[in-house]
Write a protein that binds this DNA or RNA. Structure first.
Lengths: 349, 349
DNA sequence: ATACGGGCAGAGAGCGCTCTCAGAAACTGC
DNA sequence: GCAGTTTCTGAGAGCGCTCTCTGCCCGTAT
């Protein structure tokens, strides 16, 4: 019987009546139950149970101004959600951490200009308490939107748009791309390699730039022919590697800015008869399980805690929300997070 | 000025006042504007514009009982969202189609038992108008949950739990796995191959079973040694292929139930010195752009319209919602959809 | 001119919940 | 035993919106 009530869902009113208390008391119990006599708490709990009561979120958020939902905004999903197991894992982290905070994940994929409109309207509509934004490029209007409407926002990766530089109020979670790159290159140097090249990601993304900076930190005046721009795809890595071999046949090590690209590079090296790591040592970046370990040879790579980054984004956002609602704003202001990376040695270097 | 109102968002009341009309009229205009004189429509539009009014969804859905959101429930995301570009693409289709219908996508990833609880509560809470469910296995409680609470639901792929068989009220969108497999095998036969094997997906998934059935449709009494179970992963495909070569060294063609597995198979064949397609012809399944075309040799495969399937799920759900709200239920009942597949010939067979 | 019908606009009653505020009940101290 | 506290409970006012219902105004027919 009671598990088939498909029609009218019970209201708080009904629960209160059944428990013989007022709506206010029932509400108190449902929301934590502090300050209510134990006997009544029990009664209400029982009524909730029997009726199969579930609070109506719409009514609740109408008055609390909280929705219990967080938007995850992804620009250019085609190139991202997709090709990128990276993002999938981050999403997993986000989802898990949101579950901990009893919040829902509203996924907004943004493709065209019209979508920006739609998403902008949605975010302004008070449908969500905050937003986690993954936007790749500098000209993205998203950051401006969330800022204008005052929606708490955390970015995935250091945002690259000009005004953000040095603006401490812009919150993001990133991994230590530069440090990781440094460690990778240092490792290659320690191996005695002398012509160390790098295949970068698209240089309009901060992650790519930071990794390249890390490379230059160690190899301050590297031969510019040893730097080739890739696009984070397997094919792009292959293309870049081919180009590199043509430009600098004497290359003996490559720091490739992603595992996927490293795979492409590995393939080209194999095709051209270069042995890895004997002739050319390779270090990747990401440590994506499905790629790095299975590569031939298994990739030495820089590990980032991808899922952890997703979780941290949520925690940062939630902390911001708490502050805001407490009108507290005490303590020192929230600041962006940079998660450590670490070199994982396998066979390729 | 007006684009920085971070505090109080304007209400319909405010719009009405500014336009010099009643709240009711303002509401009419905002929701389509039929039955309102053009002059007033203009005035209200202007007021909306000037105030930057955005309707409060909570208030609206409190009275309409519609949320404008659809849940996408994914069981076992780790093995799915992840490894599976397949799912990503379907999600893209879903997102795009939902945008068309002005609905939001609430992503629910389900992992442990506790999650089922949480998700069940959420779905019962009236937070969403319907659900799109991807659940892999027979024992999944999800279908039961949505059914019990009477939430309109469409499944991704034919559900495999026992009670669903033959139940026309269970709606799903699937591709023609069996037909596609048949076509693949028929093609291999037409090539004159005589020892045609198959690497299946996990046989607790209907898609895998259906593809295997398609294989048997053509090869009614195939040697059981020619059937090996894989797991839809690259590594699994490699493993299965190796096993196959051991069991039946004379195999001259393989229908592999996914492109990813086909890649693994290709790799093993290469390692063992078998030429593709000369010695062993391979046909994959999925036609995933990032895999099939880039494989060496490029894969002949069965194409499914993955994104389209996502879109169809949404359309089916939306149609169900419309019917339900119109109390119409006229016309013939909605029925599940099976999208066609087609063989794409490349070099591997 | 009066009666009647149709198209439009406004008043107002909720939707289900939270939260303040005030009053009841139980406790303390003198 | 009574005033002064403290703890708990209930009444009731909204949150912002939709939607029905009533009434106005206009055009047309009588």
């Amino acid at each position: 019987m009671s598990d088939q009530i498909s029609g009218a869902r019970p209201t708080l009113e009904a629960v209160a009546e059944r428990a013989g208390v007022s709506r206010a008391t029932a509400s108190r119990v449902v929301n934590g139950g502090t300050g209510v006599r134990e006997a009544l708490v029990e009664k209400v709990r029982k009524a909730v149970e029997e009726l199969g009561y579930v609070p109506n979120q719409a009514a609740r958020s109408l008055v609390t101004r909280r929705t219990g939902a967080v938007a995850v905004v992804v620009a250019e999903p085609e190139s991202r959600v997709f090709a990128d197991p990276f993002f999938a894992q981050q999403l997993l982290g986000i989802s898990r951490e949101l579950a901990v905070h009893d919040s829902q994940l509203v996924l907004l994929l943004v493709e065209g200009t019209a979508d920006y409109d739609r998403v902008g309207r949605y975010l302004s509509g008070g449908h969500v308490d905050g937003a986690l934004v993954f936007s790749l490029h500098a000209e993205d209007p998203l950051p401006g939107i969330t800022r204008r409407i005052g929606l708490p926002t955390v970015f995935g990766g250091r945002p690259g748009w000009p005004a953000a530089e040095g603006d401490r109020s812009v919150l993001y979670v990133d991994s230590d791309n530069r440090g990781g790159a440094r460690e990778a290159v240092r490792h290659l140097v320690s191996l005695g390699r002398e012509r160390i090249a790098t295949v970068t990601g698209p240089l309009d993304q901060t992650a790519s730039v930071d990794r390249l900076d890390g490379y230059h930190d160690i190899l301050m005046d590297a031969d510019p022919r040893l730097v080739v721009e890739g696009d984070f795809s397997e094919a792009g890595g292959a293309r870049a590697m081919a180009q590199l071999l043509d430009r600098a046949p004497d290359v003996d090590a490559v720091f490739v800015a992603s595992d996927l690209m490293a795979c492409g590079a590995l393939r080209v090296l194999r095709e051209r008869g270069r042995r890895v790591p004997e002739d050319v040592a390779i270090v990747g970046f990401d440590d994506m399980a499905s790629v790095a370990e299975l590569a031939d040879p298994p990739l030495t790579t820089v590990r980032q805690e991808i899922e952890e980054m997703g979780r941290l984004m949520v925690r940062l956002l939630v902390r911001g929300l708490e502050r805001r609602s407490e009108e507290d704003s005490g303590g020192r202001p929230l600041s962006s997070l940079v998660t450590p990376t670490r070199l994982v040695r396998r066979a390729s270097a």
